[in-house]
Design a binder for these strands. Structure first.
Length: 304
DNA sequence: CTCCAGGTATTTT
DNA sequence: AAAATACATGGA
């Protein structure tokens, strides 16, 4: 018996645009994009499932391809998908702000309906940041895949493997040498294992972080951990905790996008960056996401 | 060979 | 407090 649920969608939503973002030219091992749908595997309390997400009749449909979920599983996945594609936000105020800026107004057309694509799992998000620090994205995705395929689990369906990000319990036990073999640097290996250890010891998790009183204290808790600087803290807070006002200072891609849009001339001009983002108060994270989006160009679609 | 990539910690001024 | 530097490694 196949389970299926549907989540209603508000306006300014374009599924095709979201899917394109997921499949924008990098090799992310944690989901698979197909025409008009995406599949992703989950491990909920050691029960593995595979779901397919598609857009039907004005709603987002989640269909279980593998696994028979109980009610709590369904709630979990529904929340996860809502967070993944930021289904609860009304983009109208953001688009109004974009429209008021001549060099950004085009985004409301070109990326119309693109939702902030999140990383709901905090450990995965932190691990991804540590992997991605100071290396190019293609290489980062390669390393992520090695990590996941070596230490993660998978669900098999129609001769394809759908990988699940390894749990902190697993990563925590790895000797540094094993991660070195996957081309982690010594530091990255140390940082990742330490973060995994913090999760296992319940010093850090999404609940603890969310329970802190404000943004500043969340940043502080994260940056207190070795290997997590201001960039990672902001990245994780926007991607995983949906903080609306994150600016991942120093981000190479963001700086390039700002230069491309002639918002800054030099990468060190933090004053201009702050002045620029001040105009988008409350939507900084979304704007950063859209600026990142500009770094991947959609090829001309050939339609006859 | 050089420079950069969705940085961070450490050391030196 | 701010600036320089070491770290690691693939790809252009």
């Amino acid at each position: 018996m196949q389970t299926e649920i549907s989540i209603p969608i508000s306006q300014h939503f374009n599924w095709e645009e979201c899917l394109w973002y997921l499949d924008r030219g990098y090799d992310d091992c944690i989901y698979k994009v197909y025409p008009e749908k995406v599949r992703r595997a989950f491990d909920i309390n050691r029960v593995k499932m595979l779901v397919e997400i598609s857009h039907r009749n004005g709603s987002l449909s989640i269909r279980w391809l593998v696994g028979e979920p109980i009610e709590t599983d369904i709630n979990y996945i529904q929340k996860f998908v809502s967070a993944w594609f930021d289904l609860d936000t009304d983009l109208t105020p953001f688009y109004r702000l974009l429209s008021s800026n001549p060099s950004l107004a085009y985004m409301t057309e070109n990326y119309a309906g693109l939702r902030f694509v999140g990383m709901p799992d905090l450990f995965e998000s932190l691990a991804w940041c540590i992997i991605g620090q100071q290396i190019n994205l293609h290489f980062a995705y390669k390393i992520k895949r090695r990590l996941v395929e070596n230490y993660g689990d998978f669900v098999e369906y129609e001769n394809a493997r759908y990988w699940i990000f390894p749990a902190p319990e697993k990563i925590k036990t790895l000797p540094i040498t094993e991660l070195r073999a996957l081309q982690f640097s010594n530091k990255k290996a140390e940082y990742l294992i330490d973060v995994a250890d913090a999760f296992v010891r319940n010093i850090l998790n999404k609940e603890i972080l969310s329970a802190l009183p404000d943004f500043a204290s969340r940043q502080k808790m994260l940056t207190a951990i070795c290997g997590i600087g201001i960039w990672t803290a902001n990245y994780v807070l926007m991607k995983s905790l949906k903080e609306p006002s994150c600016i991942p200072y120093g981000d190479a891609g963001l700086l390039n996008a700002l230069i491309n849009h002639k918002i800054i001339k030099l990468k060190g001009d933090s004053q201009s960056i702050n002045e620029f983002f001040n105009m988008f108060s409350g939507w900084e994270s979304y704007l950063v996401f859209y600026l990142w989006r500009t770094l991947s160009e959609r090829k001309n679609e050939s339609k006859d």
